[in-house]
């Protein structure tokens, strides 16, 4: 299976459809984490997006994006990996603070979402499936369960995928960011949208 539009997935074509589809769903479930990978590789293009949103005092809202997602899989789970070094909030100084002080990317350069295959549902042709799956997020050297909401629409060989999760920085021992009197709230929303095609 290959994911194209906007991701291109270079994969083992001997795998069965269900396995490939499960991998695909995991992608959306990951909602924000991007790969570089092993057996599968995603290339971002088109309308794909992954972003996190954090809120702060006095109505501050910051949105960060990344564009690299990698995926690996085994018999029980699908793992999605994002390079934290690629997160971009649009302000260089803020990015540096995020990477160096809070996420400490020199020590913890990636985050991984591990999604159990048993929790995923795939849609039939022309249908939509959605659900929640309990996954495990590895971030900042810590592991914590997270609830992932996903939705997938299947059009021919294409899957429109969207997934989201909310994480608490404090669950991962990340210092709550504060800068010049503005404090960021510890809960962070992550959303991913992309289209995948079963080739």
């Amino acid at each position: 299976m290959t994911i194209a539009r906007p991701f291109q997935w270079r994969a083992d074509t001997t795998k069965r459809d269900t396995t490939r589809a499960a991998v695909l769903l995991a992608l959306l479930a990951c909602a924000g984490m991007y790969p570089s990978n092993a057996r599968a590789k995603l290339a971002h293009q088109g309308a794909s997006s992954v972003q996190f949103t954090a809120l702060g005092s006095m109505g501050l809202k910051m949105v960060g994006t990344s564009s690299e997602l990698a995926i690996t899989e085994d018999a029980q789970s699908i793992s999605l990996l994002v390079k934290l070094t690629q997160l971009d909030t649009g302000i260089s100084l803020r990015d540096r603070h995020m990477r160096d002080k809070y996420l400490q990317v020199q020590k913890f350069p990636t985050t991984t979402l591990v999604v159990p295959r048993s929790g995923l549902k795939l849609p039939a042709q022309g249908a939509t499936s959605q659900g929640n799956v309990q996954a495990t997020l590895q971030l900042h050297g810590h592991e914590h369960p997270v609830s992932v909401q996903y939705q997938v629409q299947r059009h021919g060989t294409a899957f429109d995928v969207q997934g989201s999760l909310r994480l608490q920085m404090t669950d991962f021992d990340i210092i709550v960011p504060a800068y010049m009197g503005i404090t960021v709230k510890p809960d962070v929303d992550v959303v991913a949208k992309f289209v995948a095609a079963d080739l």
Binding site: G59, L60, V63, G90, I91, I182
Partner: peptide
């Protein structure tokens, strides 16, 4: 354009 929709983060006047 820099993602700041509000004013109170930068100004004493909300």
């Amino acid at each position: 354009a820099r993602d700041y929709t509000g004013c109170g983060t930068c100004h004493a006047d909300p």
